[in-house]
């Protein structure tokens, strides 16, 4: 089994509740669902072109989660030298679960929390699939 890690990197979205959902789903995956294989990384380090962070991205699997169509997480990963192995926008999940609209940036509310659950379960499944392909 490959000992590569999976870095789940959400966008930093300071102004969008959807970005908060992406971040919360990231924490759920890396801390609760796949703590042994997955971790997160400060996206701002990639913006800063920090060499250690860029190396982590190049040498491991990366999942980019974006809060809007500007796709900051995906683009900052790409600027580090490779495309993410998995890339999603929170909006893609929202389209499938229109009733689970997140409420606010600081507190995504009940609907937002349900969306975090759905999203993190699906993401964890995809990540396991990615790791199995490598075995």
């Amino acid at each position: 089994m490959s000992d590569k890690k999976v870095y789940v990197i959400p966008c930093s979205g300071i102004g969008k509740a959807s970005a908060s959902v992406g971040r919360d789903a990231t924490y759920r995956v890396v801390e609760d669902l796949l703590p042994d294989r997955a971790d997160t990384l400060c996206l701002a380090l990639l913006t800063l072109e920090d060499e250690e962070a860029r190396e982590k991205v190049r040498d491991n699997y990366v999942v980019a989660i974006d809060g809007c169509a500007k796709d900051c997480a995906r683009k900052n990963v790409e600027a580090a030298g490779r495309a993410p192995d998995i890339a999603h926008r929170v909006q893609d999940y929202l389209k499938k679960h229109k009733d689970l609209k997140p409420e606010a940036v600081l507190d995504v509310g009940e609907g937002g929390r349900k969306l975090v659950e759905i999203m993190s379960e699906e993401l964890a499944g995809e990540i396991v699939g990615l790791l199995e392909e490598d075995d």
């Binding site: 996206l43 990639l46 900051c72």
Partner: peptide
């Protein structure tokens, strides 16, 4: 966010930092 929403909402602006590179 607290400064933007609660303490000085009229005068504060922010930016998603990774837009420096992605925007």
């Amino acid at each position: 966010r607290l400064v933007m929403e609660k303490y000085r909402p009229g005068i504060t602006v922010s930016l998603c930092l990774p837009l420096y590179l992605a925007g």
